[in-house]
Design a binder for these strands. Sequence first.
DNA 1: TTGTAAGCGTTATCAG
DNA 2: CTGATAACGCTTACAA
Lengths: 341, 341
Amino acid sequence: VATVSRVLNDYPDVSPKTRRRVQEAIRTEGFVPDRTARSLVTGRSRLIAVVLETGVGHPDLQHPFFQEVLVGLKRVAGPSAYDLLLFSAGDVGGGSGGHGYLGRIRHHRVQGVVLMGVARDDPQIEEVARSGVPCMAVDLDLAGGRTGSVMSDNLGGAALAVRHLHALGHRRIAHIGGPTATMPGAHRLMGFADEIRRLGLPHRPEYVRRGDFYPDSGHRAMAELLDLQEPPTAVFVSADLMAAGAIQALADRGLRAPDHVAVVGFDDIHIAPLLQPALTTIRQDMPGLGEAAARALVEMIADPAADAPAITLPVQLIVRESSGGRKKGRPAEGRRPLDRV
Amino acid sequence: VATVSRVLNDYPDVSPKTRRRVQEAIRTEGFVPDRTARSLVTGRSRLIAVVLETGVGHPDLQHPFFQEVLVGLKRVAGPSAYDLLLFSAGDVGGGSGGHGYLGRIRHHRVQGVVLMGVARDDPQIEEVARSGVPCMAVDLDLAGGRTGSVMSDNLGGAALAVRHLHALGHRRIAHIGGPTATMPGAHRLMGFADEIRRLGLPHRPEYVRRGDFYPDSGHRAMAELLDLQEPPTAVFVSADLMAAGAIQALADRGLRAPDHVAVVGFDDIHIAPLLQPALTTIRQDMPGLGEAAARALVEMIADPAADAPAITLPVQLIVRESSGGRKKGRPAEGRRPLDRV
DNA sequence: TTGTAAGCGTTATCAG
DNA sequence: CTGATAACGCTTACAA
């Protein structure tokens, strides 16, 4: 039994002959080592937990962003021999262990944690971040010895969007933002405001609206902007989904982007090029965020001395039709190739 | 130690006084029971595995459908005290246990498995389906003692779409389908063909195109249809994402749904009402599929005698603009409320 | 190079 | 009702 273990773990001190015999036996018997027993003795579970609130009021997994990040996580975790443990909502009393996130993390002997779609001041999350278990927060500026973060260059992206609109001649530029309680919401607003100032444009509070990253809020916000005495000629919207809602609000009044109001989104979700008009947006590398988070975790797990990185990924302006920055009718370009998946 | 275990598992044979003392100690010590040790002895892991190929050639998690199903799974698994184990791609040698899916299932002592986005003739999947571990396949007609399935009424949905178009006066109705190797692809095509026949319309092979459920293929297929000598006046598209591509193909030629070609999709993904024109579609209850699968698994796990159900969920025609079945300009209706999440 | 034996943290089976 | 004690299937000294 000890020898089998040695073969399984590729220890050197096994004679080639025995090794073969053991491997043969494993094959014919269809033996599968039991992770449960193994991790009981080693303390390692090869599990990375993904904490992601899904539920009423937190429809986060619903947002394409999280889905894409998950793809990236999976892509890196697998080859590193980790599996992903998706925690169901934290509030559920019956949840595994009947505890909060930290309890469940210990319960499963989780070795690394990805935090997303959660509030940064949630006491449960703070507890996890301080627990000493390697953590990577996505779009959340948690920090600490073993807690790092990944996010896109939201400030830079917002500036990019504003400069693009400014370069096209717009001077009345508005912003539809996300919740300022979230990092992306706050940073994109900040980037917008900074760039407006830098360009010497007046600060107009009525040009700043707040949504929730989902379509309906974009629709509402755009309607409010259109109702202003002096509506903006361009809008930087903090998420493509909200931009889609905003464009719909225009259509409701018989208006159209970019002819009446130029629109720039953020994310570059898959359907962005399929909207009418095709959406100009700031592309962030969503799977890349997931990959970076997973890589950082794998590294932190391997090296207990490694401290947690704070990673910022670059973004990119993708010019399509909704901003008026490109002529209509070359729809093939700017469409993301499918095999990118 | 035995008494603590009894308290933890709510055994009756503990004096109230001792019980309180133990609970108090658990609290002050911050004790968390170790699942690993527990499942070593009980054989139960409280883990449901989700097998979902994500990778080049299988960009499935990428499709909104799977994301929504996952939401449903999470919603039911959590309260039943199960956590979800997301398997990373199967081909990876380094994966947990270094084995195929079944190996990893045993490795983690997984108690139930959700199969989706996989090929039904994948030998690995067949192995899992025959293993005796409770399985539920989503959109896959696997069956067997412990293997059941959930899917939407794809046949009925397709018929619904065709009847809707027929009722609007269309006689030249085409179909852009998904891969016939997939259950939804095959059934929606079948439903289409059957209904065409039932209505006494001629069978025109050139009116049946095949895509891959993603936008580009819809775009290509629509372009081909438009190039026909006698193009169709209406198209039933097997997925909203493809329908979005198809609508784009129309726009490329200065055409528009429903004026030139009426379009009906399938799925009712979140952005369906935000497309221009808002997409008429067959709504399937995607989170509902996940919930049903999870519920079935929980039940099968609890009762070893229970056999696996084959569940079909109803679908619903959602009339918006792209089919011409409704007047434009009432955009508020047909939009899915956000709190449905 | 191989086998033996002591845990890992639970639950389940016994006596007390 | 409660406390020992033997598994559970593995890894890891330590002996042989």
